[in-house]
């Protein structure tokens, strides 16, 4: 469907129209986990963007070399390689951020967004388009994480990038930086996005970007395992 898109279209679609978090509902784990501070959100977003661009480029270059039957493991290994790289870079240059992102830095490997873009886009398109697609999706993800992080940091700890905000910092609503607050904030933000976009809210989490979608479809005949299947088709 994106065959005839302009290059700038490839870049911008990920930021708003196909925002990975708010629209296609991918990569929820880091979105909820690391966004207790706006700074962490941006750090995580940029790290993911880096991995996304690099893996999209490499996978796009290798798309003719990788046999179809082993493509998913191959993609995962390529992605894991770049994740290891960014782990090293971050530990060396930003040790503080490295400590606060913790295990979720390693878990970028299994972030559905990256594998999803590899499967859906990079393995079918040219290098430049794949790089732009990765950059756009990454920036959209960063934007979403920044938004989540800002809301949770301002309400939950009364600060913004570590700066105290008047009366809020005296009695912050701690619940917002706790796990429950993460679910709540994301739910409300998605509702607001739905309201602004005036679109019909998705009935369920969609499958189209899910890396396992092809397996799902195969299995769907046996059993409806992927609940978003019908929603994705409709």
């Amino acid at each position: 469907m994106s065959q005839k898109k302009t290059l700038s279209g490839e870049l911008t679609k990920g930021i708003i129209k196909e925002n990975p978090v708010f629209v296609t509902m991918l990569g929820m784990c880091p979105t909820l986990a690391v966004t207790t501070l706006a700074k962490n959100g941006i750090g995580m977003g940029l790290a993911t963007t880096f991995v996304l661009v690099c893996s999209n480029v490499v996978i796009s270059l290798l798309k003719r070399v990788i046999p179809d039957s082993v493509r998913l493991p191959s993609f995962i290994v390529i992605i894991a390689g770049f994740v290891t790289l960014i782990e090293f870079l971050m530990r060396g240059y930003l040790p503080e951020l490295y400590a606060s992102l913790g295990i979720f830095l390693s878990l970028i490997t299994v972030n559905c967004i990256i594998l999803g873009r590899a499967e859906v886009f990079a393995s079918k398109n040219g290098v430049l388009r794949s790089a732009l697609d990765g950059l756009g999706m990454g920036l959209g993800f960063t934007l979403a994480l920044f938004l989540m992080g800002s809301v949770r940091e301002i309400i939950g700890s009364g600060c913004f990038f570590g700066m105290k905000i008047g009366d809020l910092s005296a009695k912050p609503m701690l619940i917002f930086i706790m796990p429950a607050g993460g679910f709540f904030t994301l739910g409300v933000i998605i509702a607001v996005v739905n309201k602004i976009a005036k679109r019909k809210p998705p009935a369920e989490i969609g499958c189209e970007g899910c890396p396992s979608a092809s397996l799902c479809k195969k299995n769907a005949a046996e059993k409806a395992s992927c609940t978003g299947e019908e929603a994705a088709k409709a």
């Binding site: 993460g182 679910f183 709540f184 994301l186 739910g187 409300v188 509702a191 309201k195 809210p201 369920e204």
Partner: peptide, 22 residues
């Protein structure tokens, strides 16, 4: 409410379940 239908309501419900696990 209409805007909360689907994913948002599910997430808010998850928040409450998470609260109980605290």
């Amino acid at each position: 409410p209409e805007t909360f239908k689907g994913v948002p309501a599910t997430l808010v419900a998850a928040a409450i379940v998470s609260l109980s696990f605290m």
